[in-house]
Design a protein around this nucleic acid. Structure first.
Lengths: 229, 229
DNA sequence: GACGATTTAGACAAGACTGTCTAAATTTAT
DNA sequence: ATAAATTTAGACAGTCTTGTCTAAATCGTC
């Protein structure tokens, strides 16, 4: 149970750094070339290590691939939850706040390096590793969608929106907000910031036309008053 | 100008059939294995021809790949335009008719064999062949989106919808209607029919909450009367 | 400065794949 | 039936890749 020699920094300092740089390089190469086309020599070169070191760390091309997917999933999840934390629970300007949230999520989680890579690996190799990607599905969408849906539910409870099913609304929010980016995403491209903003703006406007406060105008005041009490 | 020997059936009967079966088999293998992982021996075996025949017909792995993408694009386009032709221009029950259209488009164009394959090839190899996929972009989305947008515009002109920008509305329609299928699409899966119907139903309802006839209730009658005149 | 762990370069065997070639077999149309 | 075109099976050279092995070099720490 107790560590006899060294406390818990057993691996030398550079060890983990190399591991990281290998996984990073591997992510890029796997994305560009696909699993079959990925060349371990090239990964080693891009990581700045020798081929043998790659094998020392990960043992196997397939194991390396799995490490890449798991790492990307973890890092993306961190980013997504950090962004969800910025969801406007008590919005001043609902439209502007939701647009801001959508843009943040796109820029920080979907369109950044990790997001792009993870998405591509899922698309290209998902069918080859059902177990690995079942894991991703649980860890990723399985945890993030409910979290987002909960935020929309709270917004509805606060009287800012009129929503039947928060889970459906959450997914539709994304469908709308990314509606104009689909073709770019398909080809693996990164939309320009103004495209992201444009799509988010149009999407949020439509979303609010559908779900914006409808029933009684007094509703909101009542709820906000309660929240401020 | 005139065909001297044989009218225009120059190639023997089985020739084109073999070409087709090669392209078909190649589509499946390229999708499953990726370009680099695709094995020409395997393609030949699945097509039921010898490897040499594959080379006789297409010359080269890369040329074969391009032939596959072009064939799929063509066939998908045919399907999409056939489905667009069933767009409800003068709907009886607008909600039901739009749901039907969305479901048809998904089942006949997006989720069928050709649609799945083309989508996957674009996702996985799009970045490797910029020119080829620029071609696809023109031939595919470049022609189908305007056609669909035109149908929505007509629906708006007929007073059935209140739409600012038909192009945006068309893309948002798809974002909504496929909102609940994204994860399945990502992993290359085929959603069950009831999932397609469910997502389409929820999507169309939201779409109509946003774009359904709003301004004056008399609007519709006037326009339909005109159309019937 | 010395020790243990890690990393490196390079060689290596085994296997897989592409694309070509040839000669025989088969199909198609006349 | 015959002639032309097409297809087939198989061998083949050349290239590439993975994963292992070894001996030397380097790093981090005491």
């Amino acid at each position: 149970m107790r560590a006899s020699v060294s406390p818990d920094t057993s691996p030398p300092r550079g060890h983990e750094a190399k591991r990281l740089s290998i996984v990073d390089a591997a992510a890029g190469v796997f994305c560009r070339e696909g699993f079959a086309g990925a060349n371990i020599d090239l990964i080693a070169a891009e990581a700045g290590v020798s081929r043998q070191t790659v094998y020392n760390h990960h043992g196997d091309k397939e194991k390396l691939f799995m490490a890449v997917v798991r790492d990307l999933t973890d890092r993306c999840n961190v980013g997504i939850f950090a962004t969800i934390a910025t969801f406007p629970d008590q919005p001043g300007d609902l439209e502007a706040d939701l647009i801001g949230f959508a843009v943040r999520l796109n820029q920080n989680c979907i369109c950044n390096r990790d997001g792009k890579f993870l998405r591509k690996l899922i698309q290209t190799e998902g069918e080859r590793y059902p177990q690995l990607f079942a894991e991703w599905r649980e860890q990723g969408p399985g945890t993030t969608w409910p979290a987002i849906a909960a935020r929309f539910a709270r917004l509805a409870y606060g009287g800012y929106l009129t929503i039947d099913d928060p889970d459906v609304a959450a997914r539709q929010f994304f469908g709308l907000v990314n509606a104009e980016l689909q073709t770019t995403f398909m080809l693996g491209g990164t939309p320009r910031e103004d495209e992201v903003v444009q799509s988010a703006t149009n999407g949020v406007r439509t979303f609010l036309r559908a779900f914006g406060r409808r029933p009684s105008p007094g509703n909101v005041k009542k709820h906000t008053a309660l929240a401020n009490a």
